[in-house]
Every structure is written in structure tokens, then in C-alpha cells.
Design a protein around this nucleic acid. Structure first.
Lengths: 228, 228
DNA sequence: AATTAAAATATTGTCAACAATATTCGATGA
DNA sequence: TCATCGAATATTGTTGACAATATTTTAATT
């Protein structure tokens, strides 16, 4: 056993999965804007692959909710109305709440230590940069990612990390959402404390409020954006 | 506008979507048992269609979580371990809780009247049948369906009705889960009252407890089933 | 006999052509 | 000029063949 010494782990990804990644990136980056058509012949030419794998990729995007398909008509990049965005956040609130609750039960002590270090590095960053930017919001994602992963619920992880988050990122691209870093940091610290205390109920409540607040901020930002 | 008088609304479904339905039914009915391989050539012959539409159907099943696919190996019907079943119920608890909360805000008065009638018919049924069977559990689904639909959250509806429920139904097939009807009916009535009072918070709490209890019942049934 | 290696087989992944449907463009009429 | 109808075009849906990979069978060696 262990016959081959190949470092390269023979991960010859399939074309369909590769082009799926590319399409996700193109949508999130805005190269394929919201509402734009997904033309099979065009993309087939652009990426130099047949329509078969491309269709598989589009099917996957539909599963992620990044694309809407109509029979005999084709696929379009989803357009996130304000309504839909708030729908997505409602789901996120529910799911991440559960994730926090289960994480409180399932996190290892090592997980907790790592999470504490992450928060400390965020705190330093916010301190040094006078509350600006907050690591381009990536740090926020890190925090949420780790808790979701720590929940140990595979379907939950898939639903949040592989599906919902892409949708949120689409929105984040176009809006320069403020994201008050001190406030967020404080909330993270409280959630962390609840996790460390293994208080799943409290962790859930705090996580839900954290996300609900972020949702309200975004809605306010949209409001403001529309009034200028 | 409105040029054609065709009653038949030109719903010429695509082969892929038709075979998707068939496969879902076959999986839920147990004709394709848990863990069995999904062979493309075999099913292609059996249903008399090409492999293209069949692959699209399999992709969709994967999106629903009914099937697990491995590159260059193929797809298998998912096998629901006890662990996974409890994962699914955790997600259901979170999502249906939110659905109840939003339904309390968005239900029309007519929706409420209809729901009340549904509960009354359930009550009559339980009364007449001395607490047996409870309409093959279909009535329970009806109740949940209506609340989910009434939430008005399209993504939530899709996640619950088009994806999660199929998974629960797979399990229900093999187990003759008892489902104590009086208890369930009482819980339904309480949820209904909260909805009528437009008390979203309470409706959410009650719905979550309702589902958590069902989950515990199922786990107990599994336990018992294994010990015989 | 058991284990490994190699060939044969079967299955999945991909491609290119064809069929069915939708969209676009232009012609015709009022 | 505008609306409506029809032909032309383009796109999606489907098929069958081929390529790449995995699985099974067979053969050979220890």
C-alpha cells in the first residue's frame, strides 16, 4: 500500500468542476454582471471546452443559486433585489445560529485557542488601523467560517460555505458596505466567550443578533445608496 | 397580448426534468435503495433516454443531497446514518423556525382561516380514529408546507420543500415512525394560535420545539429498532 | 495458494452533430 | 407609422461516438 511516491496527488480535476470554479469567480468578481445572460456557445468558445462540461457547471451554479435557468431559454446570473438579499440574510441568521450552537458543543480546545488568536489579531489590526477597513472584511469571514466548520454538521457547512456565502459576496462586491469594525469585533468577542463557556444557547442568540445587525447595516447602506 | 387560447399551457417539460422527478420518486419509494449505485448506461436503457439528460438529472439529485457523486466513479444514493439524520433535523429546526416567524408577519387572513380549517379536520380525524395513524403523516406535512409557503421567502421554500423534505421522506419510508398524533395536534394548535396573534417570536420557538421533539422521537425509534 | 502485474472490460467524461424551441429580423398589411 | 405575421437565425435540448479513467478479470510469479 501507498505504492506511488507521487507528490502530485493525481487530482486531475474534471473540466466541469474547473470551469465551475472559474464561473463562480467571474460572477463574484463582476466579470459576469448580475442579470447577464450565460450563453453556452460563447462561454464554450471563451474557455475552449465543449458544451457538455459547461452545462454541468451551469447546473451546479443553479444549485448554488448563483444562476437562474429557464427551459429552452437559458441561464442568467441572478439579480439580487433588496428583497432577496434580506431573504438570504434571514436564512443565514437561522443557519449560522445553529452552527454556533453546535460549535459550542463540538469545538476542540485547540479550535478555541486558534479562534482566540484570530480575534486577537483582529483586535490588533483594528487598533493599529484606527478602525479602518477591517482587513477587507476577510477577517470577518474567517471568524464565521471557523465556527461553521467547527459545528461538524456537513450539510450545514455545505449550505453555508458552498452556497449562501457566494451570494453574499456578490452583493459585497458592488457595495462598499461600511462594516463598523469595532462593533463587529466586540460581537465576535462575546460569541467567542460563549463558545469557550460551552454555552450553545447563548452563542446562538449572539450569532443571530450579530448577523441581523449586519443585515440592517446593509439595508441602510442600500437605502443611502439609492438616495444619492 | 394573450394571443393563444391554449388551455394546455405549453408545458412541454424537458426530458431531464421529467427523469429527475422519476428518480426522486424511485429513491423515496425505495426502488433505488440507499447506497445503491446509479449506473448511467443502465438507467439510460431503462428509461429510454440518452445519457445527457440523465446526467443532468443526476446533477440535480446531487444538488438536492439525494445522491453523492465521485469524479470518474459515479453516483450512489445517499445513505442516511443516524448522525446525518440528526444533522438534517437541526437544519430543519432552524429553517422552519424562521419560516414560522416570517409567516406570522406575512400570512393573509385567508391563509389563517384555511390553516385553521386544516387543523380542525386533523382534530376530527384524530378524534374519529382514536389517535391512530394521523393521516399517514401527510397531514403533518400539509401543515408545515403551508407555513413554509406562507413565509414568502422563496429561497427558504426551495431549501425546505425541494431539498430537505425529500431526505426526510427517505427515512420515513423505512421506519414506521410512531408520530404521536394527539401531541402533534396540540403543538400545531399552539403554533396556529401564535400565528393568528401575529407573534412571530413565539411561533418560531414553538415550531422549533415541535421539530426538535419529532427528531427525538425518531432517534428513539431508531434506538429501539436497533435493539430488537 | 496468495499476491502482484497486466490486460480486458465497463463506466464516466468530453466532444461534435442533429433536433426542437425561442428569438430576431424583415416583409406585408392596415 | 405601427402592428402582425412569417421566415431566418441563434440557442438550448438531445443523441451517439470517442477519450480518459476506474474496475474487473486473468495471468504469472513467489
Amino acid at each position: 500500500m501507498m505504492p506511488m511516491t507521487s507528490i502530485e496527488p493525481t487530482i486531475r480535476l474534471t473540466q466541469a468542476s474547473e470551469v465551475t470554479e472559474v464561473l463562480v469567480q467571474d460572477i463574484i468578481s463582476g466579470q459576469l454582471p448580475e442579470g447577464s445572460r450565460i450563453s453556452e456557445p460563447e462561454l464554450s468558445r471563451r474557455y475552449g471546452i465543449g458544451r457538455g462540461p459547461l452545462r454541468e457547471a451551469i447546473l451546479r451554479l443553479e444549485g448554488m443559486g448563483l444562476v437562474v435557468r429557464a427551459p429552452h431559454v437559458g441561464a442568467r446570473v441572478v439579480t439580487l433585489t433588496r428583497q432577496e438579499l434580506s431573504e438570504i440574510f434571514a436564512i443565514r441568521e437561522a443557519l449560522e445560529g445553529i452552527a454556533a450552537r453546535e460549535a459550542a458543543r463540538n469545538m476542540t480546545n485547540e479550535d478555541l485557542i486558534d479562534l482566540g488568536q484570530l480575534i486577537e489579531s483582529h483586535a490588533r489590526y483594528v487598533d493599529e488601523h484606527n478602525g479602518e477597513a477591517y482587513m477587507d472584511q476577510e477577517g470577518d469571514y474567517d471568524f464565521h467560517y471557523r465556527i461553521i466548520k467547527a459545528s461538524g454538521n456537513k450539510r450545514l457547512i455545505r449550505a453555508l460555505c458552498d452556497e449562501l456565502y457566494h451570494l453574499v459576496r456578490i452583493y459585497r462586491r458592488s457595495s462598499n458596505s461600511a462594516a463598523r469594525p469595532e462593533q463587529a469585533l466586540t460581537e465576535h468577542q462575546m460569541i467567542y466567550k460563549a463558545l469557550k463557556d460551552r454555552d450553545g444557547e447563548l452563542a446562538e442568540i449572539l450569532m443571530r443578533r450579530h448577523i441581523a445587525r449586519a443585515c440592517r447595516e446593509i439595508e441602510a447602506a442600500i437605502e443611502q445608496q439609492q438616495n444619492e
